[in-house]
């Protein structure tokens, strides 16, 4: 029976299946690449976020007790994760080798230390806390002219990249919906195209179950082929990118169980579950 039904389905619908192959090749390739880029950007951000601090420079402060009091004030701000103190001594030690030899010859170490500020490296709880924290710290600079604030370079770029996460979630939702809609649309198109044959089959005593199973078999076959094709292409290109830019990690990493689990879930949803669900929904009104 399946042989005859396959003949009916394939002969009349081959062009639609070809279309599905092209669509899914593109969709899967783009999906994998989106995840690859997104995870790499997030990874880079994470590394940067841990080092991201607002530097507060305190000049002309000789009394460590005042610094301690200021520190206590800042620690009360809710956006603060922790604070590192760099004393003028430490700072001098760090930059000594970069200072011109004339300066080192003409000034004593004590004189140089007097010119150097205390640096408070203030780490926010997360990147999104950064602007609020900066506003609060700016208030301190207004009441004390010896205090200056420096933000890290490229901060704005990093700050906006952080919000990519929310954008990405929205994109993923739309992208999945687009795929579901396409599958539903394709199934409906196939159903309409084969409507007469389906009805004859039902009137002869057949059931839609066979049609659904057969459609599932064809869809899965085409999707597996397209998946294999586009995934190979993705792995080849992502490998090339990662070999050029070593900080770009492989996603999914075959050696990591967690990566493989997510990849498996993605495959199961896109190749098996969503097609089956759309087949069931599209056949709702075909029973006679």
């Amino acid at each position: 029976m399946f042989r005859y039904l396959s003949k009916i389905e394939i002969k009349q619908s081959i062009i639609y299946y070809l279309f599905l192959f092209l669509f899914f090749s593109f969709w899967n390739f783009f999906s994998l690449f989106s995840f690859y880029f997104y995870l790499n950007i997030q990874n880079t951000l994470q590394i940067y976020q841990d080092r991201l601090a607002i530097n507060m420079l305190i000049f002309s402060e000789k009394n460590p007790l005042n610094i301690f009091n200021l520190l206590s004030e800042i620690e009360k701000i809710p956006h603060v994760k922790n604070i590192d103190i760099v004393s003028p001594e430490k700072l001098l030690e760090k930059v000594k080798k970069d200072l011109p030899s004339e300066i080192l010859e003409n000034f004593s170490e004590e004189e140089l230390k007097a010119e150097f500020p205390y640096i408070l490296k203030i780490y926010p709880l997360s990147i999104k806390d950064y602007p609020a924290l900066k506003d609060r710290l700016n208030l301190l600079t207004k009441v004390n002219s010896n205090i200056q604030i420096y933000e890290p370079r490229f901060f704005k770029l990093i700050y906006y990249a952080y919000f990519l996460k929310i954008g990405f979630v929205i994109f993923v939702a739309i992208w999945i919906f687009f795929y579901i809609f396409f599958l539903y649309f394709l199934n409906n198109l196939l159903n309409l195209h084969l409507k007469n044959q389906t009805q004859i089959f039902l009137l002869l005593g057949g059931t839609l179950r066979k049609f659904k199973l057969l459609r599932f078999f064809f869809l899965v076959s085409v999707l597996v082929l397209a998946f294999g094709h586009s995934s190979s292409l993705f792995f080849f290109i992502s490998d090339t990118i990662s070999s050029i830019f070593p900080f770009f990690k492989h996603y999914p990493d075959i050696s990591k169980e967690k990566d493989m689990l997510y990849f498996g879930i993605y495959t199961f949803f896109t190749i098996f579950l969503l097609p089956w669900l759309t087949i069931l929904i599209s056949y709702r009104n075909y029973e006679i």
Binding site: Y4, K7, I200, L202, L203, G205, G206, T207
Partner: peptide, 25 residues
């Protein structure tokens, strides 16, 4: 039910006015 309807139809022989054949077979 669907299954019963299908069994009922299996016991019918229907000759349609418009033949209702599978053209590709």
């Amino acid at each position: 039910k669907k299954k019963e309807l299908s069994l009922f139809r299996q016991n019918l022989g229907i000759i349609f006015q418009d033949y209702k054949l599978f053209p590709e077979l």
